[in-house]
Amino acid sequence: MEIGKPKRRITVNPKSVPIPTPLPKFPDPAPVREPTPPAKVPEKVPAHSTSTSAVSSVPNGSGQA
């Protein structure tokens, strides 16, 4: 390709680069979740469980020796 005899130099400093930004895409709607059934409470607490004793074992700092 020929552009012909050079006439002048141009320095173009655009305020913003002339590249289109992608059009925003609307997010997909959040999937509808089935209601979660309430967790089943175990009928029997295992004998070695510490789940209830952990709180009571903490010193209460009441000063009783």
Binding site: I3, G4, K7, R9
Partner: peptide, 12 residues
Amino acid sequence: SLWGEIIEGEDG
């Protein structure tokens, strides 16, 4: 769109 340094000729 053209930008930066550019040489302009008679035809382009």
